[in-house]
Design a protein around this nucleic acid. Sequence first.
DNA 1: ATATAAGTTGACCAATTGGTCAGGTTTTAT
DNA 2: ATAAAACCTGACCAATTGGTCAACTTATAT
Lengths: 214, 214
Amino acid sequence: MTDNKINKEGRIGAANKQLILNAAEHEFAKHGFKGTRIQQVADRAQLPKTNVLYYFKSKENLYLAVLQQILELWNSVFDEATKDDDPAEVLARYITDKMEFSLVRPEASRIFALEIINGAPNLYGFYKEQHAAWMEGRVEVIQHWIDEGKIQTANAHYLLYNIWACCQHYADFSAQITHLQGKEMDRAEFEEATKSIINLILKGCSLEIPEKYR
Amino acid sequence: MTDNKINKEGRIGAANKQLILNAAEHEFAKHGFKGTRIQQVADRAQLPKTNVLYYFKSKENLYLAVLQQILELWNSVFDEATKDDDPAEVLARYITDKMEFSLVRPEASRIFALEIINGAPNLYGFYKEQHAAWMEGRVEVIQHWIDEGKIQTANAHYLLYNIWACCQHYADFSAQITHLQGKEMDRAEFEEATKSIINLILKGCSLEIPEKYR
DNA sequence: ATATAAGTTGACCAATTGGTCAGGTTTTAT
DNA sequence: ATAAAACCTGACCAATTGGTCAACTTATAT
């Protein structure tokens, strides 16, 4: 049971890896996989390019690590809802969480969007199970409510798509929104937008909007 | 008034240009600007690479031409709505048109999405006026209804964003949807999804759903 | 008929860029 | 102290790829 030190990263490695991952998320979100240069990531992380390759053997490897990190975050945010909770409460909470995610981690959302527009080669290859499980879990909850007559909606899938679409739009299309409104949305405006989505979705399901989300 | 023939394209040129544009739309939608190789476009159009460069001087030029073509289509589809029409009718029609667009021209929608995620450098540079005018026109119509009390919604912008988001999602994220449902959505399913959006948006604005859109 | 423009294309080039490598320094466990 | 592992990085390379060029064929107007 001796602790083998071979191929174990030290403190420096862990810190630098995170530094690089953050820089890479920024660059991949803005330029896509092909459009991102390792040199740009290195510059942003203030490290030499060779150092980036030292920690992440290849560009693809780096991208996969970024995607992995995003998926972990993604899952953790929405894992709380269960089928025994009140639909109105859960949906409102769900939308609030998603919008919070769009506000604080827009770049993560954009990388996810780029991956899917690109045909999701990695999501349905490398992280297939992980991603599928996350989605199936959400569909299951809604379907349960429909079966029990707790919620009025024709199709669990379409409801989820509409929620995802509205919430992710504020991250993925923020350049368009900023341009249209003449300035970046601040937190107050994000909360207003969140209410507009909650209003839309809950009314659409003929649910009462909980007091604290009005 | 003599007809100067210098730099005028003949029939062959017009036909080939369109052939290349169609191929380019396909490739740009799938791989983004940086990820697309001129050779791939040429292969899809079944022409030598040099021939593509002959008609479109550079890759950027080709991309701009594709974007231009998409914007013309985009605008033409939504220019019909006016502020004097019935909001319920117009919104339902608007959503139907957008969903039809997502069904028949998903790649155009994806190029548009990629451009915006990328920060919309060309939309707010080259085609700034064109694009802004299209958006402002839509906002104006909604705002007019709000001012006249014809429609119950807090914010014209957010309403439009939510409509765009839901409809474009079915084009931009079709890879995810296809994966989730195990097969591509057919027209019947698209019509069902369209109804779910109309239901959501109109109920959200406290509008009656017109008979033919139920 | 023929001149002029439009269209075609293989050969080639220069720049970019992902990735390697070897020779170093620093950290860490004992 | 010292050995082993972890970390660092300048120099370099091979492959990709956007774009040029010159020689050629085809179409078209008069």
